[in-house]
Amino acid sequence: MSSPVAKPVRMSYREACRQAIRDALTNDPRTFLMGEDVGLYGGCYAVTKGLLDEFGPRRIRDTPLSESAFVGAGIGAAIAGMHPIVEIMTCNFSLLALDQLLNNAASIAHMSGGQFAVPLVIRMATGAGRQLAAQHSHSLEGWYAHIPGLKVLAPGTVEDARHMLRSALADPNPVLIFEHIVLYNVEDELDPAVESVDIGSAKIRRPGRDVSVLAYGNSLPKALAAADTLAKEGIEAEVVDIRVLRPLDNATIFESVTRTRRCIIVDEGWKSGSISAEIAARLSENLFFELDAPIRRICSREVPIPYSRHMEEAALPQTSAIIESARTLIGSR
């Protein structure tokens, strides 16, 4: 029976992540989920709540507290033909699995001369803003974007949270998805006509002619809010959702900055050696003669993210800083 024209569905980013996993488990018997507390507890951020009841313990597997072990197991399963989803509670903890990620997941396809693909997806929570202090609040996606052999995604919208997983599982390379902890409660309308998103390109979320604001993850809503305010002052900011941190979509970014001739990069990572540093370097390498102002970066303060609310807020990129930076770049006109 054909369904009537589907209406937009309102859902949270958390629910979108859950629906994406349900779809994957339903549609592909090779897919299973494992990680710390994903089963009985329903996930540290409640993303996987209810999935154990629905799919059973063979496909929703609670693991011991050993990132190295269960990431390694996921890599082995992927090499053996499965398409596993591994959840790491926060990206801070992923460092325990760094050896597996860099020396195995990212390298095996190359070291085996292409004989072994690693179609593994690792989801992890990233970012600050919920007073979880320094050991649970860092943004390390920029580090992983340094590694050849990995793909690194940062969904900043409910739609991307809903659809990126499917594209990631279809990719023969290990794909890391960084879900921002502040976004889990964000709700938005989902267009039912959209059934997939591509994980190769950045996306212009708001067109504008005066300055390109590049952002990803939870910096995206901040950039959009800044653009709203700037528009009232007559400054048209173009907001580009970088969303794929590796491989970076040079084409979309360069095209935007060539048009606006000014660029602000918003990155919740630390400024030194960050993904924003990489983008700024590429822009000055390739678009030097197109630039009408210095490239500006708005990043987290270079401190372990503090616990207390006012200090945490002070450490993170904020909408007001984006607005101020755009005003300065544009000058008096």
């Binding site: 001739r261 003669f289 770049l329 000058g331 008096s332």
Partner: peptide, 26 residues
């Protein structure tokens, strides 16, 4: 700015004679 220099060269204008309205009066 680099973009202004390039445009000035195309237009045959000496940009150093102009008043700047950009960042730092560029």
């Amino acid at each position: 700015t680099p973009a202004a220099r390039r445009r000035a060269a195309e237009l045959g204008i000496d940009p150093y004679t102009l008043k700047g309205t950009g960042i730092d009066d560029s």
